[in-house]
């Protein structure tokens, strides 16, 4: 079968290009820009919408663009993934993005509405950086928030964890998920995901 030259080159670029992008080291500016973009988008949602379902949807949409929801979802399930049936996994993958968004939405949105300063970007490896920022509380004092940014397999840059004063929200959640699976199995975890993070 003869492929047109342009189509062949396009296919080649698709095959070769994606891994090449995935291997590209993260530049500090790139990581900083990603976090700044998230803060900017969340701030504008906070300013332009009133609290309620519409704002939540807008925040989720913004967070979804910056946070690697699939990867975080896999991380939260950890080794319990090996115990789940394919049907339970499919259900988990369907439910967990909403749960993550609801989990981080309130806290992150609350923080970014306040004064923020990105202090430095630390390269942790070729494919990972830590963007360190500090939020000044209106009531006084500050909160350190660090953003773990990774280049994913498709070459895109995403936030994979958020540390508030060094405490990883997703590590804590992962421990909670494991405890739920240990005591009630995957059905109990799926029930928790349906109820949401406030349950």
């Amino acid at each position: 079968m003869n492929l047109p030259r342009r189509a062949f080159l396009a296919a080649l670029a698709a095959v070769v290009g994606a891994p090449a992008a995935a291997q590209q080291p993260i530049a500090a500016a790139e990581a900083r820009a990603l976090v700044e973009g998230l803060i900017r988008d969340l701030s504008s949602v906070e300013q332009l919408t009133r609290p309620g379902p519409e704002r939540d949807r807008a925040l989720d949409s913004a967070l979804g663009r910056y946070v690697a929801l699939d990867r975080v979802g896999r991380f939260l399930l950890g080794a319990s993934r090996q115990q789940a049936t394919p049907a339970e996994l499919a259900e988990y993958d369907r439910l967990v993005p909403g749960f993550i968004l609801a989990d981080v939405r309130g806290e992150i949105a609350k923080l970014v509405a306040q004064s923020i300063a990105i202090e430095e970007v630390q390269a942790r490896s070729d494919r990972e950086a830590l963007v360190r920022s500090r939020f000044r509380r209106r009531a006084g004092g500050s909160v350190r928030v660090d953003w773990r940014v990774q280049r994913l397999a498709d070459g895109s840059l995403r936030i994979v964890d958020v540390f508030v004063n060094g405490v990883s929200r997703f590590v804590i959640r992962r421990d909670e998920f494991q405890a739920v699976v240990r005591s009630g199995g995957m059905p109990a975890l799926l029930a928790l995901l349906r109820k949401g993070p406030g349950a």
Binding site: E128, R148, G166, V171
Partner: peptide, 10 residues
Amino acid sequence: EAIEAVAAGL
């Protein structure tokens, strides 16, 4: 992956 996550913050 869990160790790396904690290490990144701590």
